[in-house]
């Protein structure tokens, strides 16, 4: 942010890429995917077809677009100046992700501390009308029997979630270990650290899937289990989705490391993915404390 940034660019040329078709194609893919999703949830048969085509276009473009960036990078198009743009950009992108999660955490705090207790304090509760067991007490983790009337048990914090916490914290450590390897030019440590990180992420996702299965089939806890189920699945679900994205990005970084990309000085992609992974890690810690534990 200081003026010294600008003054280091004197006399340099900034890399402005040649015209590229990928941005509008990506938008077309997103339009197709969105249309398909709208059609699907409104029970039109063509929906899934649209969705698949849209997703295929998006994945194809991501390959091409990121491929172009990697190619430019490998052929020396980027100096420190462009590198700083990418870094700033990634920081603000993660900032926007933080705010996306903030919306769901906000919903959690609001329902847990305001709407559920107020509903419990309504006169109806004292007149013997009960929407769910514990309605009159405004109790939190049983709210959700809701209109469907099925009982559920919340997921305990001290089973799979504890293991998952350990897994994600370790994955943060292995990733940092890989980074140290990169900094001292130990390629084995870099690749092995990345591999371990992806592995830990994958185990985390497997356990999370198992937990969802357990919740749906044995605990009776579903998306429809009142606002408890809604906040539980949306928060953990979006987190899991971000872990998936992070794991995919880490895999790309691992593959690039195996092709000899990155050196001790220039490895923005590695660092960007690492920031992202640590961000996902911090979100998990909040989830563990606020959703599972308290």
């Amino acid at each position: 942010m200081s003026s010294t940034h600008a003054s280091t660019n004197e006399g340099q040329h900034y890399f402005v890429p040649q015209p590229s078709i990928w941005p509008p194609v990506l938008s077309a893919g997103m339009l197709t995917l969105a249309l398909g999703f709208i059609l699907k949830i409104n029970h039109f048969g063509v929906g899934p077809l649209f969705m698949l085509s849209g997703a295929a276009i998006i994945i194809f473009v991501l390959f091409k677009w990121f491929g172009a960036v990697i190619y430019e990078n490998q052929t020396g198009a980027y100096s420190d100046w462009e590198d700083r743009s990418f870094r700033h950009g990634m920081v603000w992108f993660i900032g926007s992700e933080v705010m996306f999660f903030a919306a769901f955490f906000g919903a959690l705090f609001y329902t847990r501390n305001i709407s559920v207790p107020i509903l419990g304090s309504l006169e109806a509760a004292h007149a013997g009308i009960t929407l769910w067991p514990g309605f009159a007490e405004g109790a939190w983790n049983v709210v959700g029997v809701g209109p469907k009337g099925t009982a559920f048990t919340p997921v305990s914090a001290w089973g799979i979630p504890t293991i998952n916490t350990a897994l994600l914290l370790s994955s943060g450590a292995t990733l940092t270990w890989a980074h140290w390897g990169l900094l001292k030019d130990n390629r084995f440590q870099l690749k092995f650290g990345l591999f371990l990180t992806v592995l830990l992420g994958a185990i985390f996702l497997g356990l999370q899937a198992f937990e969802y299965h357990h919740a749906y089939t044995e605990l009776g806890l579903t998306l429809g289990s009142g606002v408890y189920g809604a906040t539980f699945f949306m928060l953990t679900g979006f987190h899991g989705f971000h872990v998936t994205l992070g794991a995919i990005m880490l895999t790309v970084v691992l593959l690039r490391s195996m092709s000899g990309h990155f050196d001790a000085k220039r490895h923005f992609a590695f660092e960007a993915v690492a920031w992202y992974w640590h961000f996902v890690d911090v979100v998990w810690l909040l989830l563990f404390v606020l959703v599972y534990w308290l």
């Binding site: 509903l119 769910w132 809701g146 429809g224 009142g226 606002v227 906040t231």
Partner: peptide, 9 residues
């Protein structure tokens, strides 16, 4: 889900 539906909290 019941984010905005009082019947589910």
């Amino acid at each position: 889900t019941h984010f905005f539906i009082a019947a589910g909290g």
